[in-house]
Amino acid sequence: MDTRVGAPVALVTGGSSGIGESTALALLDRGFTVYAVARRVDRMVPLAEAGAHTFAMDVTDDDSMVAGIARIIEEQGRIDVLVNNAGYGSYGAVEDVPIEEARRQFEVNVFGLARLVQLVTPHMRARRSGRIVNISSIGGKFYEPFGAWYHATKFAVEGFSDSLRMELRPFGIQVVLIEPGPILTEWNEIARDSLLERSGSGAYATHARKAHEVLTEFDRPGRASTPEEVADKIVKAATTRRPAARYPVGKGARLITTSRDLLPDRVFDQVVGRTFGVR
Rank of each mutant, 00 (worst) to 15 (best):
91 Y>W: 14
12 V>F: 01
267 V>F: 12
195 L>C: 02
198 R>K: 12
131 R>P: 09
198 R>E: 00
207 H>M: 10
15 G>V: 00
135 I>E: 00
171 F>I: 00
135 I>Q: 00
41 V>R: 12
5 V>H: 13
157 V>K: 09
167 E>L: 03
55 F>E: 05
245 A>R: 14
235 V>P: 04
181 G>N: 06
200 G>T: 05
113 L>S: 02
217 E>A: 15
52 A>T: 00
50 A>R: 11
237 A>D: 11
231 A>R: 03
48 A>F: 03
191 A>T: 00
75 E>G: 02
271 V>D: 04
268 F>E: 10
64 S>H: 03
67 A>T: 12
239 T>P: 06
167 E>H: 07
36 A>N: 04
101 E>D: 15
120 V>K: 07
196 L>T: 01
213 E>F: 00
118 Q>Y: 11
147 G>N: 09
53 H>F: 12
24 A>T: 08
39 R>A: 10
15 G>Q: 02
76 Q>I: 00
160 F>Y: 15
16 S>C: 03
102 A>L: 11
260 R>D: 09
46 P>Q: 06
219 D>E: 13
32 F>Y: 15
123 H>P: 02
274 R>C: 02
4 R>Q: 13
27 L>G: 02
51 G>K: 06
124 M>L: 11
266 R>K: 14
176 V>G: 03
179 E>W: 02
253 A>E: 04
40 R>W: 00
10 A>W: 00
215 L>K: 07
266 R>V: 14
174 Q>C: 07
